[in-house]
Design a protein around this nucleic acid. Sequence first.
DNA 1: ATCTTTTTATGCGAGATCGAATAAAAATGG
DNA 2: CCATTTTTATTCGATCTCGCATAAAAAGAT
Lengths: 203, 203
Amino acid sequence: MANAKRGRPVQYDREQALQRASDLFWSAGFAATSLDDLSAATQMTRPSLAGAFGDKEALYIAALTRYRDASVDAMREILSGKRLLRTELADVLRKATDVYMASADAARGCMLIGTASVEAVHRPAVRRVLQESLGAFNAVLEERIRKAIADGELDPEADATGLASVASAIMHSLAVRARAGEPRDALDKLSDAALDLICGKRP
Amino acid sequence: MANAKRGRPVQYDREQALQRASDLFWSAGFAATSLDDLSAATQMTRPSLAGAFGDKEALYIAALTRYRDASVDAMREILSGKRLLRTELADVLRKATDVYMASADAARGCMLIGTASVEAVHRPAVRRVLQESLGAFNAVLEERIRKAIADGELDPEADATGLASVASAIMHSLAVRARAGEPRDALDKLSDAALDLICGKRP
DNA sequence: ATCTTTTTATGCGAGATCGAATAAAAATGG
DNA sequence: CCATTTTTATTCGATCTCGCATAAAAAGAT
């Protein structure tokens, strides 16, 4: 019979390596992060990196995908539909801002918007991941907004698609502005204004 | 007496060189654009580039600043106040989308949002330009919205600061989505939905 | 016409980057 | 205990990157 798993066992933890690689990509971007940087951060030699993930772009895409999946899951969990849309949406925006400004030094914004956008023009694979990801976030928002319309929290005539795209836009802007160094309260003001427009001004 | 202008006259056109350099930075980003690329595109040798603009980052900042000034001027011109806010704002969003999707191949979005965001984390000078620029665009929008409130086109209770930040957010999102490869009509739908929210749904 | 000044042109060199190729190590199978 | 397989470790080489240093060219000043 053939095998179970022969050969020398891997020493690295794939998830942990992806996490460390993501940190570098997230703050410096794809182009400014070298394989040596990644090798040092993951404590994997370059041949090991190549064997585990392929070339630099493949590693970057794996990091992006992992980030996206975790973020979409987190968003979906907050938008569970158990509370008011306004409450849940405020929570999404606040938690997103937390993540975008989490870094000890300069804020890093959203990894997709902050680092994948540049590469999207000349790297179709990155562009595809970015576009799919924007669509995934938007879809979660739109679904939740449809529920709010059905529940009567929003005007039955409301345009769920349009409102979702505006809500997405607010997140895109939070990501950009965080990375530009805007202070927390400016981001919160944007979120509040957007909530008033999307959900109706609160009394 | 000292001089008028001695020495060999410059052969390059500074504006044209900045234009060509901007094209490269805009599509590939700062990190992925080499001095050799810039030298070839501007038809200036590297020492000439260094003499005229300083190092690569200084050239990039000059390109960003020029782009920003031209864009702010264009926006201010459209938001002249001669027409309805809704009409002028629709014009701003449409023309911005035109620019963001102008490229023959992959759309390049906004040069500031698409390329300066990545660098902003590790390059304070770039971060400063980006933050100032976002503020400049926002200020033009806010001023025009204040006028609309004074003119009675918008509710006198409307929050000009908040509405301006939402309008800015729409532009940020248009920039990101263009670079992500979203189709024109998706961007136009976002603009329409935003106009309905900001200016009030049209009858 | 010669000198001075400023720009352009060419090339050098230290350092980094990335992929691949080769050798050593660690596990299983017979 | 030896062979096979898979990962890890080290190294090399081709290319790119960027700043600088030196030489040539083009203009004004005297």
